[in-house]
Amino acid sequence: MTEPTAHPAGTAPGTAGPAAAPPVVVSTPEELSALRPSLGRIALVPTMGALHSGHRRLIAAARADADSVIVSIFVNPLQFGPGEDYQRYPRDLDADVAACAAEGVDVVFAPTVEVMYPGEQLVSVDPGPMGQVLEGEFRPGFFAGVLTVVAKLFHLVRPDTALFGQKDAQQLAVIRRMVRDLAFGITVLSIPTVRDPDGLATSSRNAYLSAEERTSALALSRALLAGADASVTGPIGILTAARAVLAEAEAATPPVAVDYLALVDPGTFGEVTGEYRGEAVLAVAARVGATRLIDNVPLTL
């Protein structure tokens, strides 16, 4: 842990630029509480580390909305199921702190598992019906783990705003519902999905892909684009266009194994009918080799 660092004269907390102080790195609730009175309006960017360009875009948006930015870095065991990649999930706190410094982050909160879960976690947040479909169906318990850790972070950090990426659209929706239903008094903001130049949505798990697997994985974004291009044809046309791309990818080498492709209402994540008109999300999840990827695109029908 580094000691709290004062901002240079004339530089307010949350001010980027050459004179910005490096982030203060803390790991306990007590350290957070000691810092909070000096931080003003706080924006929180919750992460599991392995920061990439998508996280940097979130941090930039957070800086525009608050006096100070706190980035949390915590690989949350509650949201990983048996056989998932909790143990091998990329962890490099030094690199993450350096990335935060480059983006002008004020505080990095990097708690240990023992700090976040000092005993057996008997109480969790139930995501309700929205958390039982799509990702909730394929990863049972995932959203309960996400909402539980996010709720704890909200209580510990006490931010005014919190920022999440649209790439995790269902996660964003259940967090917004939790904030509304449990009266957290926090504004949840989002940014559009950030993509690499080849179209693949940025993700910490992209590092698992071999060159050949990455080529196959590009079918996810191509399928979403095909569906978006067919939006004037309605839900059936959208899904038909996207499925055609994924069908080719399932026969590729290496193959893409699709978990789901769905066109859903962004407020409920229930699948829309053939006569639906309004805002929608076209979402896909698939495995390429041992790596599971998700992606989505918002549409207006």
Score class of each variant (00 low, 15 high):
Val108Tyr: 06
Asp265Glu: 15
Val256Tyr: 03
Val256Ser: 07
Leu172Trp: 03
Thr300Pro: 00
Ala101Pro: 00
Tyr89Phe: 10
Pro159Gly: 10
Val264Ser: 04
Glu137Lys: 14
Ala20Val: 04
Arg180Gln: 14
Gly234Thr: 08
Gln87Thr: 10
Leu293Asn: 01
Ala6Gly: 01
Ala244Glu: 15
Val97Phe: 09
Ser27Arg: 14
Thr300Ile: 03
Glu84Met: 09
Val25Trp: 04
Val97His: 10
Arg41Ser: 13
Pro197Tyr: 05
Gly17Phe: 12
Pro235Ala: 14
Leu224Cys: 07
Thr161Trp: 03
Thr28Ala: 13
Ile191Thr: 15
Ala61Thr: 11
Val107Thr: 03
Gly83Phe: 08
Glu31Phe: 07
Val281Thr: 11
Leu51Gln: 08
Tyr260Gly: 08
Glu30Leu: 08
Ala257Leu: 12
Thr47Phe: 08
Ala12Glu: 13
Val69Met: 01
Leu44Val: 05
Asp67Gly: 15
Ile59Cys: 07
Leu134Ala: 02
Ala252Arg: 10
Ala98Ser: 12
Thr202Cys: 08
Arg88Ser: 14
Ala19Cys: 00
Thr273Ser: 15
Met116Asn: 09
Asp168Glu: 12
Val245Pro: 00
Val288His: 09
Thr233Asn: 12
Val258Asn: 08
Leu182Gly: 00
Val146Gln: 05
Gly289Cys: 11
Pro159Ile: 11
Asp198Leu: 02
Ala61Trp: 08
Val108Ile: 00
Glu3Cys: 02
Leu156Val: 05
Gly185Arg: 06
Asp126Ala: 12
Leu189Met: 13
Asp198Pro: 01
Ala50Gln: 10
Leu299Gly: 04
Arg277Gly: 08
Thr240Met: 04
Leu218Ile: 03
Thr253Arg: 08
Gly131Pro: 00
